[in-house]
């Protein structure tokens, strides 16, 4: 029991030891990668994956900030984001399937029926 408490303490200390801006830079890099992925990829599956990356980047930023201020809110938000991501993926994949069935392609540029 005591050991477990000790190890938790140690992990918190270890994380606290990492400077906050490291975590934030990592989140920013991940976010930028996701954004670039969305912008350059034409395959809708890759776009969805990039969105996941962006979501996780945002989640990471929350966790880092939560650790910094020693508040649980950041972790709550991460869980919330995970849930949203799961929902988003399921809807997105369903749409993807329908699109594929209808247009026989997953090229995002090919599907531009909604242009004004």
């Amino acid at each position: 029991m005591a050991g477990m408490k000790m190890s938790a303490m140690r992990t918190a200390e270890a994380v606290a030891a990492i400077p906050m801006h490291h975590g934030l830079v990592l989140a920013a890099v991940l976010f930028a990668l996701g954004l670039i992925g969305i912008l350059v990829r034409r395959n809708l599956i890759f776009i969805l994956m990039s969105i996941e990356i962006m979501l996780n980047a945002a989640g990471l930023a929350f966790v880092v900030a939560g650790a910094r201020w020693e508040q649980a809110d950041g972790q709550v938000m991460l869980i919330f984001i995970l849930a949203v991501a799961a929902v988003e993926v399921s809807v997105g994949l369903a749409l993807l399937l329908l699109l594929h069935r209808r247009f026989q392609t997953l090229d995002a540029d090919a599907v531009s029926k909604m242009r004004g």
Binding site: I38, L39, R42, I47, V111, K113, M114, R115, G116
Partner: peptide
């Protein structure tokens, strides 16, 4: 014209 219908441009 802005409504191109291309998701990536919107993004």
């Amino acid at each position: 014209a802005t409504q191109s219908g291309q998701v990536r441009r919107y993004a």
